[in-house]
Design a protein around this nucleic acid. Sequence first.
RNA 1: GUGAGCGUAGCUCAGCGGUAGAGCGCCGGACUGUGGAUCCGGUGGUCGGGGGUUCAAAUCCCCUCGCUCACCCCA
Length: 425
Amino acid sequence: MAAKHRAPRGTQDVLPQDSWRWQRVEAAFRDTCARYAYREIRTPLFEDTELFVHGTGEGTEIVTKQMYTFEDRGGRSLTLRPEGTPPVMRAYLEHELGAGGGIRKFHYIAPIFRYERPQAGRYRQHTQLGVEAIGAPGPDIDAEVIALFQDFLGAIGLSGAVTHLSSIGCANCRPALSAALREFFGPKLEGLCDFCRARYETNPLRILDCKVPADIEARQGAPSALNHICEECRDHFAGVRAALDALAVPYEVDPTIVRGLDYYSRTAFEVIHPSLGAKDVIMGGGRYDGLAETLGGSPTPGIGFGSGLERLLLSLGDGASPRGLEVYVAAASPEAREAAFTLTIELRRAGVPADLDYTQRSLRAQMREAARLGARFAALLGEDELKADTVTARDMNNGEQRSVPRPEIVEHLAALCAAQGEAKR
RNA sequence: GUGAGCGUAGCUCAGCGGUAGAGCGCCGGACUGUGGAUCCGGUGGUCGGGGGUUCAAAUCCCCUCGCUCACCCCA
């Protein structure tokens, strides 16, 4: 029972019975991105460790304790991509994609690796559907990426998601905001939970997000991020809201949202889905106007989001599996096996998904298999058919059978499958 | 990193000191070449791994690995 080898902790196999769900979501995302003119970018699975130390931020949770870092045989320190944005910005700068000015819009579907304790909706390897729009200061582009995501949710049929929006200020006003929060919580420090006392030092904004009842009490009257950001940030935020309203994109203002990465500024947003339990964020993102400079480029504004594919799938739940097979070819006698194999290949070459038994099982077992695989038709070959040079075609839905001359069977089944395929649409 | 719950047949689980069970699945038969219904029969497990207590351990104790959920953090 205990298999000798298992998938590493926090990773999962996507088995054939589930992979079609992944393909559906990926296809919808690519399609939505194409309509919004975001072009696909693919960056390496691993990067120089320094890219994340500088880009993501030295003090962040990701860099200090979650990276899969290793040394290659040449002594280089490399890290499995723990988030999507720095590699895209790196590629943007490396290939001078911004040359000539204007905006460049990218999308990607990329595996992400973080060393964390696995839990519902949290994995050590997960997949992010992401978008990055580099080169425009907003606020209209900020609204666009949010609109894009909501359209995508509509395309995959996910309802019930709520978009939370805030502004976390810029490099100029954030220090003042932190100072105001420390001033407010300083006298109440004793009453806060252990975690919040730590947050007081590292990131006082997070205290506003704490769920401990006493802390919720303690923060009554605390300074709100949105009241303490500078004039420019306030204007920008108002611009984002106006653009979202103009696009009829629903959202909720939520000053408690916090971003865990150093490079975020101004616009910050999350999309949550109530079906997910503790890990209910299906998309997170924001503006990162300082990142390009941090990575050695010239000042370049940018905004993007990442969305966890596994969490999207969890919130979508189960659905009926699409039918895959059209024809199952069954051999009623051992002598017919070769003819069955030949017919199967002919069907496949004619564009008809077809399969047969390879283990010499009884006709009964073959028919059971045909039903289990969801085949629309069974093609039967046995002594009688070989003698008469025919094939018996059985409609698996109603059990009707007819004898078709062998030379016509491929065309006959191909036509039937095409016709039924049309009818289904 | 912290805490809790759980690891018994392919799957879902019962058994909680005395020679391993059920349902579903799978295979076969009733139905001599025909699936999904019904009935009958059969296949199936180093009881996660290691150590200990005991005449005797799936069952009690310790360690370990894994899974799950929550905290933390985040997609």
